[in-house]
Design a protein around this nucleic acid. Sequence first.
DNA 1: TTCAATGCAAATTTTTTGCAAAGTC
DNA 2: GACTTTGCAAAAAATTTGCATTGAA
Lengths: 147, 147
Amino acid sequence: MYLEREKLINFLKENGISPSPQRMQIYEYIATHDTHPTADEIYGAVYKKIPSLSKTTVYNTVRVLAEIGLINELTIDGTEIRYDADTRTHAHFKCTQCGRIFDISDGFDGNFSPELGKNELNLEGHTVRFKQLYYYGICRDCRENSN
Amino acid sequence: MYLEREKLINFLKENGISPSPQRMQIYEYIATHDTHPTADEIYGAVYKKIPSLSKTTVYNTVRVLAEIGLINELTIDGTEIRYDADTRTHAHFKCTQCGRIFDISDGFDGNFSPELGKNELNLEGHTVRFKQLYYYGICRDCRENSN
DNA sequence: TTCAATGCAAATTTTTTGCAAAGTC
DNA sequence: GACTTTGCAAAAAATTTGCATTGAA
């Protein structure tokens, strides 16, 4: 589902950016954690492997990775940006109690077109490049724990 | 579509919060501007009518208004929260060129259930209270101006 | 006079910017 | 050697917090 090392290196090179250890590790961390980490969380984890890492590099890298479409930015929170290496269109659910963000494979009505993101669409005269669907509520765990 | 003065006062009182001039003006500003203003923009505008206004009061007020459901928070941007007094479920389109945010009356596929927000829904075991659909792209004006 | 609401100042959090040092082709 | 990438430090932007003052019932 996510790019493996070989393909990642090629994809980066095709887009004119070099596969530095920092970039490889940052992408790998995002791709292997479905927690939709923030820049700070990415930094905290990758720092253990590359102690010289700076937050500036994390911010630079996630911007570059988002620009070439390797990851998506999630703005489900108003005050921090989260990153997702699963670039197939899917929705997200945020539990307002525990704060966790869950992937939702499809809109609840079965109509959250999974093909968007590849094709441009026209919406009331505007050209759509991308969309995000966010749900908010109480997750299963929090609901059951409160019983 | 938006609460007029009388109803606003009653609604605030019903929810145990007093209809102070600050709260009235802040709600009125959001309700009469479809620009989805940020706290800073609200402050800049309401400050002209209430020069003693502080940003803390703006932040306090928008939190309270959101809690009682008078306004919605938009997190279409990752780094700032915008406010919308139209609490009917509808989508938003953000132009990545000019930065403006447009109301979209309905999802492009006609299936963005307008009744959500009133009824709770179950989604893969989680309890949904609220949802937001955000589109990103180039607005009509920007597209035509670039020709 | 009690409690809620406001406002100032400082602190916190997230992200961005300027620039020098290090690495790459 | 030119160009890219990194990392530090400082700045900027958005939001929150502590607390004293004001205002209303």
